[in-house]
């Protein structure tokens, strides 16, 4: 009886996740071109060999790893700071929390275009500021060497709230008694951050890293729209 309740959800998951994966695996060992009359025929792993020996594939992989590593690192640092601030008891904390969440909640496409406009050359605010200072234009998005940094920035802006919320939850599990005891023992507040807060937050930070890495490797809309698929 109980298993019947589980069945519809499981079936749907198996179909939507399972079919594409099986299909890809099957296709990856077949060729389907004009030569074969558009009929898929087995080609004994030639696709895989071609992929592994393709320079572009390794370059793309390198760029994805680089993007994920840098953006997740920055997100953790920034989120830690934001969480420490949000953990303080001040007036208007609820409102600030809502505002912090906004970047995470808005569609990536919307903000990807927003960033494209902000980084726009020559009309975006950044280039205008450079002009105002009589400096050379940066041409951030049209220069492949730095365009990926702009996408990292967009990703950090969007997903830091998510990481901050997880770290904040971790902060709120730490008992105040620990800090009291540390103070009685003669510890300074700054040391308490390193001696108590960070070690106790570690599981939460690791959790956030795992979640974020999984998402960062699948990032698509942000980069497609910000750079037109060019940089990564």
């Amino acid at each position: 009886m109980n298993l019947i309740l589980l069945l519809p959800a499981s079936c749907l998951i198996i179909i939507i996740f399972g079919f594409p994966l099986i299909r890809y695996t099957w296709l990856s060992f077949h060729a389907s071109t004009v030569v074969t009359g558009l009929e898929p025929i087995a080609n004994n792993g030639v696709n895989w060999i071609r992929l592994i020996s393709d320079q572009r594939f390794w370059q793309d992989t390198f760029q994805t790893v680089r993007f994920a590593a840098l953006s997740v690192t920055l997100e953790i640092i920034l989120a830690l700071i934001i969480a420490l601030i949000l953990d303080q008891r001040w007036r208007g904390r609820g409102l600030v929390r809502s505002i912090t969440l906004l970047p995470w909640a808005l569609p990536t496409t919307i903000m990807a275009l927003g960033w494209r406009w902000i980084f726009n050359s020559p009309y975006g605010p950044i280039e205008q500021f450079m002009q105002y200072l009589n400096l050379n234009p940066l041409n951030i998005l049209s220069n492949p060497k730095v365009a990926w940094l702009a996408t990292v920035f967009g990703d950090v802006w969007k997903t830091t709230p998510f990481v901050a919320i997880i770290i904040l939850a971790g902060l709120q599990t730490i008992s105040n008694d620990l800090f009291e005891a540390f103070k009685l023992e003669g510890g300074k507040p700054k040391e308490a951050l390193i001696e108590i807060t960070l070690p106790l937050l570690m599981p939460y930070i690791l959790l956030a890293i795992i979640f974020r890495l999984a998402q960062a490797f699948g990032v698509f809309d942000l980069i497609q729209i910000m750079t037109g698929g060019g940089a990564s």
């Binding site: 934001i82 601030i85 912090t100 970047p103 406009w117």
Partner: peptide
Amino acid sequence: MNKINPWFVAICIWSLAPLLWQL
């Protein structure tokens, strides 16, 4: 307690600035 926390303001600017630019 009635003072506004400058850090809160910094977070708000960070989150809202790109949106205000769109506005």
